[in-house]
Nucleic acid binder design. Structure first.
Length: 175
DNA sequence: AGTGCGATTGACT
DNA sequence: GTCAATCGCACTA
């Protein structure tokens, strides 16, 4: 699970959907080497990489390799646990299923922006990762990409309604 | 210095 | 279901 500590209180949720952007993946922002924007992807695994897309959305990633190697995991959806009233305020909606279903919504629900880029998520602080119960895991192709779109690198909890994307990509059972 | 576009979302038919 | 908004950044010149 991911925990956000704010002056107004704590916000947290179970991570129910992720996508991997491994070493050598042309869709990974680190693919063409380090820049000012993607520097956090090259930090020791467990650091936050936050970036801004489409002029409107922040994306929260966790770096996943050794220092100097650029790769990470995008957090795509949460099942809200603590601080749902704060999430409702940040997201400007009351619907529980709309609070953190989708990567941009997730970042907004946690009040994430570039100021959290580079934070160590494995240490106490304003944003950190905690152990949590795991459920049945499903996998699919990634969502929304133009490059390397076919790779099966999206992982989600089967049957969880807080998972984003079309139903066809989030089957309830394997078959 | 100028240009094209993206790991999306929310509004609308 | 479709589609435009919006802006930082990488890339070309």
């Amino acid at each position: 699970m991911v925990v956000r500590e704010l002056p107004a209180g704590r916000v947290s949720g179970r991570i129910v959907e992720t996508e991997a952007y491994p070493l050598g993946d042309a869709a990974c922002h680190a693919f063409r080497g380090p820049t000012a924007r993607n520097a956090s992807l090259f930090l020791e695994r467990g650091h936050a990489y936050v970036y801004f897309v489409y002029g409107s959305s922040f994306m929260l990633n966790v770096s996943s390799e050794r220092p100097g190697v650029g790769a990470g995991v995008l957090l795509r959806a949460l099942e809200p646990l603590e601080g749902q009233s704060l999430m409702q305020r940040f997201r400007k909606t009351r619907r529980a299923l709309d609070l953190a279903r989708g990567p941009g919504r997730l970042a907004a629900a946690l009040r994430i922006d570039r100021r959290q880029d580079g934070l160590d998520l494995c240490a106490p602080g304003p944003l950190w990762l905690a152990a949590g119960a795991a459920g049945p895991v499903g996998e699919s192709v990634r969502i929304g990409l133009t490059r390397e779109a076919q790779r099966v690198l999206r992982f989600f909890e089967r049957g969880n309604p807080h998972v984003s994307g079309p139903r066809s990509l989030s089957p309830t059972s394997s078959s």
